[in-house]
Write a protein that binds this DNA or RNA. Structure first.
Lengths: 108, 108
DNA sequence: TTTTCTTATCGTACATCGACGATGAACGAT
DNA sequence: ATCGTTCATCGTCGATGTACGATAAGAAAA
């Protein structure tokens, strides 16, 4: 009936960025795209379409999601597009996740 | 017109488990729940509802998602439920993510 | 210019997510 | 047996995600 502790609600916004990055990783096709980009070393365009069992439109959409999440960069090179892993963003994400996992080490 | 390389399509199923775990992490409320469980050390029941700015039904739904993803365990203790981080699952996920990030170190 | 190749975007259809109120189930206490 | 508490589940609804074909936009090649 009465307020328990005068609303000490958690601030969810502090995790919004990390949650968004995890969402970008939360699809097999997008993880496969990242793996492919890393494996080829150099940037790749629509070879990804040939590799994935998905339509060109769907692949392009997944690439857009990864780009909007800041995990990859895309540059137009003539008639084709060249995508590349954003190393800085990836290292940042890696560090953030590592920090979370460290804080989660103390379980019951 | 002709098959480029006789269908060397990537197998997306190999990343399904990891993608599913990332999806479980891809919501601020769920990350906050994990942080709360870790912070309290001991298992927690519906105090989470008091902490999060969400309804009891919504919190229960997030807890279910985390449990189905195997990241937490839930035990019924009398009239209340006691949740706890699954340390083994968390370490496994941490290792898998670390492996992915290592393979992504070689960027352009 | 016209064609061809490559890629992005639009529109659509269906599935899933995220949030909530309401209800139900389980238990302790009266 | 009847409350009151705690929690899970149901049903609903709008928003978002996933997939595709079709189309548009751009540059190279004819």
């Amino acid at each position: 009936m009465y307020d328990k502790k005068m609303s000490e609600k958690a601030d969810l916004t502090q995790f919004e960025a990390l949650a968004g990055a995890c969402k970008a990783l939360s699809h097999p096709a997008r993880l496969t795209i990242l793996q492919t980009l890393a494996r080829r070393g150099t940037c790749i365009c629509g070879e990804i379409v040939d590799i994935l069992p998905l339509s060109q439109a769907t692949v392009s959409q997944h690439l857009k999601i990864l780009k909007e999440a800041g995990l990859i960069t895309g540059e137009i090179d003539g008639p084709r597009s060249c995508y590349c892993i954003d190393g800085d963003a990836m290292r940042l994400l890696r560090g953030q996740l590592e920090q979370v996992f460290r804080s989660l080490e103390h379980c019951c």
